[in-house]
Amino acid sequence: MGLVDKGRLPKPLTTLFNMGRSYSLWVYQWGLACCAIEMGAAFGSPRYDVMRLGVIPLPASPRQADLVVISGTVTDKMAPSIKRLYEQMPEPKYVISMGSCANCGGPYWDSYSVTKGIDQIIPVDVYVPGCPPRPEALLEGVVLLQQRIKNEDMGARWRGEGTKAIVREPIVVGGGPVE
């Protein structure tokens, strides 16, 4: 993969790679609270059937995952584990923050033990608002993320222009910018 390392990738190859990446997202389910059930419904139930979107919800460990869905309330006691989990994932990695608690603290905005938003700890690509969001909302978040991955400049990410390339306007399901 020397071409990729140098960041010089022919356009058709980038398209091919991106398509491959976007339709084989291995998603690690980090279920913390109520939203975990809706995530389970979206990823594990026959009605919503996430695998038709090319998402594989069953990696055994975060080290095999491309995408993590943080769903539910993150407490200050839990936050270090979240950080460690994120650091274990291989690049390129994506984060979906599901539910109001993970987005901003939600109904526990004034609590003494809840982290008000996981974006204080790790960068977030997609916010799915709701308390809890319906499974369809999470699926839309996945689809929007796939669109973004398809348009991504892989070379830039590999060259380590990471900070610029990664920190972008996050997607908000049901509003906000969509590429």
Binding site: D76, K77, W109, D110, S111, Y112, S113, K116
Partner: peptide
């Protein structure tokens, strides 16, 4: 049981403020 080890104070005492508020 609940709080991280570096937490100070006793939350359910009435003179414990909720800082966010």
């Amino acid at each position: 049981m609940y709080r991280p080890t570096d937490f100070e104070g006793h939350p359910l005492r009435k003179d414990f403020p909720l800082l966010a508020r």
